[in-house]
């Protein structure tokens, strides 16, 4: 039994036929070819597969595609605009917040959602927001500093 769904992904509308058990990450990666969102635990724990659904973070490995029907999805590919990195992406690069990079798209999406909601997020708020994303390489310090540097920027 397949179901037709409509997703707005990174500003473009896509239709897809999915099974009831198809997850959002499967549609993003396999149907739409958006492989920027990586997958790890498949249980919604590690945060690697985090995307934005209507601006809020979601683990795309456990969100069913049908649950996202009609919603607005943002993935890491949708961050850059007109060939320019977002300030957050550039600060991840400048601060060395990335090593192996497998967790990076998830962290970027979580931090993007945080800054949209709280442009002046404090350090404890940043740390709290990032609690659902695991990074095995960096020890988090440079990630927090990278996010903080964008907060500190005068608007």
């Amino acid at each position: 039994m397949s179901i037709e769904i409509t997703l707005e992904v990174n500003g473009r509308t896509h239709r897809a036929r999915v099974e009831p058990t198809t997850t959002l990450i499967e549609v993003l990666r396999e149907t739409l070819g958006l492989t920027g969102t990586n997958k790890d635990c498949g249980m919604g724990i590690c945060g690697v597969c985090t995307v934005l659904v209507n601006g809020r973070t979601a683990s795309s490995c456990i969100l069913l595609a049908v649950q996202a029907d009609g919603e607005r999805i943002t993935t890491v590919e949708g961050l850059e605009q007109d060939g320019h990195l977002t300030p957050l992406q550039e600060s991840f690069l400048r601060f060395g917040a990335v090593q192996c990079g497998y967790c990076t798209p998830g962290f970027l999406m979580t931090a993007t959602a945080l800054l949209a909601e709280k442009p002046r997020a404090t350090r404890p708020e940043i740390v709290d927001a990032l609690r659902g994303n695991i990074c095995r390489c960096t020890g988090y310090k440079k990630i927090v500093e990278a996010v903080e540097s964008v907060v500190a920027r005068p608007s």
Partner: peptide, 21 residues
Amino acid sequence: LPRADVLYKVRGRARYVANVP
């Protein structure tokens, strides 16, 4: 100095095995 590979990693362009077309 910032690393060249990281520019592609923050853009979601890194080809881990699962991402190799």
